[in-house]
């Protein structure tokens, strides 16, 4: 066991002080040490997106991030997106469009979508942006490309794109469009 290094990190608004083995990834620190299990481990090698969190506002893969390297940073997981006004519009849209099935990739998808919408608002292009110097319009093709770093084996892709499309354009129907549950 190597010596541990003290660090602090704010997760979903709560500050934590802890000491970590330098080998500990941000994902393992969240899940095993801080018991924040809302970020999921699908591959541990950057190949699926299930561990996506917002790190200081940008979407990243927590499985390929060393915890010690992120001392002092702010992490938001799918659980921390809600505000006093209720669920985040992207979260609402995922519910409304049934943009998930087993739900395992979902927290990562939602963090990724929040990041992707923000990137598009900031004018960042993608591989399918026809005119690299022009404006970015988040149409279905753009969304699918920007969300491709999040695999969904249940293949909820069609609904994920619909959810992101509506959330991005502020037209997400609230859950009331589907009969609310018990």
């Amino acid at each position: 066991m190597s010596t541990t290094i003290p660090m602090s990190i704010t997760v979903d608004g709560e500050r934590h002080d802890l000491a970590v083995d330098p080998r500990t990834t941000l994902l393992d620190a969240l899940r095993e040490r801080l018991r924040v299990t809302t970020a999921k481990k699908g591959c541990d090698h950057g190949q699926c997106g299930a561990c996506t969190v917002l790190l200081d506002g940008r979407r990243v893969l927590s499985c390929l991030t060393l915890a010690v390297a992120k001392d002092g940073s702010h992490v938001v997981t799918a659980d921390g997106l809600a505000t006093d006004d209720g669920l985040h519009p992207v979260t609402e849209a995922f519910l409304a469009y049934d943009a998930y099935q087993c739900g395992f990739c979902t927290p990562g998808q939602i963090c990724s979508a929040v990041g992707a919408i923000d990137e598009a608002r900031r004018g960042m292009p993608s591989a399918v942006t026809a005119d690299l110097t022009g404006e970015v319009t988040l149409d279905r093709t753009e969304i699918a490309e920007r969300m491709s770093g999040n695999l969904c084996r249940c293949a909820a892709y069609v609904n994920i794109v619909s959810a992101v499309e509506d959330a991005a354009h502020g037209t997400a129907p609230r859950s009331s469009t589907l009969e609310a549950q018990a």
């Binding site: 997106g49 940008r58 893969l61 990724s112 942006t129 690299l132 969300m147 491709s148 770093g149 999040n150």
Partner: peptide, 26 residues
Amino acid sequence: ADARVRERYPAVAAAILAGASGQLRN
């Protein structure tokens, strides 16, 4: 995303965007 890169060196911007994923590129 840099405007100068996109305008003056489109191959550079396109190459990066063709790789990995949004999260990884961040």
